[in-house]
Structure formats: C-alpha cells, structure tokens
Computed example of a mutant assay.
Amino acid sequence: MTFAPSPIPSRTQYVLEAIKHSILTGQLSPGQALVETELAAQFGVSKTPVREALKTLAGTGLVVMSQYKGVTVRTVDAAMAREVYDVRLLLEPEALKRSILRKASLQAAQEALVRADGAEDRAERSLANREFHRALYLPCGNPLLAKMLDEVRDQAALVSTVAWASDPSWDREAGEHREILRFALDGDVERAARTLHNHIAGFVERAFPDSEMSGASGRSEGFEGGEAR
C-alpha cells in the first residue's frame, strides 16, 4: 500500500484558519482591526496570503471590509443575530426532519456530544457544538440545503461566541442537545424538529432579549418536549 501524506495547506488557507479560530474563540473581539502588515509579521508570510484570507473571511461574514476603517472583525448585534438565526430557524429543523426520515446515521452527532462534555476550554466546546448541529443537517439528502446552512455556520458561531462570553450557558444547551438527539434517534420527526427549533430560537432570545424574532420561534404552546424552551 502506498503511503499518501496529508496535503500541506497553502499559506492562504493556514492564515485563514488561524484568523477564523481566533475570531470564533474570542481571541479577536468584534470590531477589532485586522491590519495586513501586522498579521503578515505574526504568521511569517507576505501580505498577499493575508489579503486573500481576509477577502474569504469577508465573504463568509466574519470580517467587514471598509474603505475608511479597513478590515475589522464583524460586530455582533441583535439585528445581525436575528438575520443569521432566522435562516437557521427556516432551514435547520427541515433538514433534521429529512435526515430522520432517511434513517441517516447520527453517530457523528453522538460523538460531538461526547466531545462537548469532555471539552477543556471554550474553543473545544464551541467546535463540538458546531459539529453537533452540522451532523444533524448534513445527511439530509439535499446538498444545496446543507450548503446553505454551512454558509451561515461561521456567523452563527460568532453570535454564540459573543453570547457565551457574557452568559456561558453551556450546560443548558448541552441538555437541549441531548433531548434533540433522543427524539431524532427515536424517529420522532416532529418533536425532534420542534425541539431543535425552540433550542435555536431560545438561544438568540436569551442572548439578545430585544431581538424580537418576528414570530419565527413559532412555538407550540402544547409542546411537551421538556427543557427546550
């Protein structure tokens, strides 16, 4: 058997992942300036890969490019959170329904829960949280639907990072994750989707109480899904 070494990431990809990690773990704060020359010196590269990485991050919504302010980490406010989470509320529960109906394996979601429980820091736990949600929608059978959710994934993680900095509600959300997965594994399509919906809506409502999710939370008053409110 021929040994195939792992591909070495390009300088641009290396810089991109490093900056993204710093943003999504709170090491770089919303509104903080990202100066090309400083980043190039920090990573030991020329300004070109830094510039390309920042352009890509701007495309994913993690940074903002301004003619006057230069490049800054995107600021999180109620309006931004509402936009991102409204997309998740519209698409993610439907994707989960389809994953369940296809009897897709949710082993990756179970593994993500275990990693979250054993996480030693915020960065590790945040990554496990993102992996849990992705493991629910990725096997939905519609690549375009999964891609659309992937496109708001980083922005949702940025919202979470800011919210957790002021209110580290890890334990509550871990309990809701276990409940979502329990319903999904039981094949209870409607309850799993509703619990996921309430989980997503509840998080942004707690983090940004004035965000008024414009009725998107769509909660059923008779829902008996336990602590998913």
Results as ranks from 00 to 15, higher is better:
64 V>T: 14
80 M>W: 09
71 V>E: 08
82 R>C: 02
54 L>A: 02
71 V>T: 15
76 V>T: 02
46 S>Y: 00
93 P>H: 03
47 K>I: 10
52 E>I: 07
67 Q>T: 13
89 L>I: 07
85 Y>V: 02
65 M>R: 08
69 K>S: 13
59 G>P: 05
55 K>V: 03
82 R>K: 11
84 V>M: 10
97 K>L: 08
95 A>V: 07
87 V>F: 12
91 L>N: 10
94 E>L: 14
100 I>D: 11
109 A>L: 03
60 T>I: 09
88 R>W: 00
84 V>D: 05
75 T>W: 01
108 A>W: 00
90 L>D: 15
101 L>A: 07
100 I>Q: 03
56 T>S: 13
48 T>Q: 10
62 L>G: 06
93 P>M: 01
68 Y>K: 08
53 A>M: 03
94 E>Y: 04
58 A>G: 14
77 D>L: 09
48 T>V: 12
88 R>Q: 13
99 S>C: 04
90 L>E: 15
85 Y>M: 11
102 R>Q: 07
109 A>Y: 05
88 R>N: 09
94 E>P: 10
55 K>Q: 08
81 A>M: 12
72 T>N: 12
68 Y>S: 08
97 K>T: 15
95 A>R: 02
49 P>D: 09
52 E>V: 06
95 A>S: 06
79 A>C: 05
83 E>T: 12
78 A>D: 14
108 A>H: 03
67 Q>E: 09
78 A>L: 04
80 M>K: 05
108 A>Q: 08
88 R>E: 14
52 E>Q: 15
52 E>C: 06
54 L>C: 01
68 Y>G: 00
64 V>S: 06
111 E>T: 06
96 L>V: 05
73 V>K: 12
101 L>Y: 01
101 L>Q: 14
55 K>W: 00
58 A>P: 02
112 A>D: 08
77 D>M: 11
69 K>F: 07
81 A>S: 14
72 T>M: 04
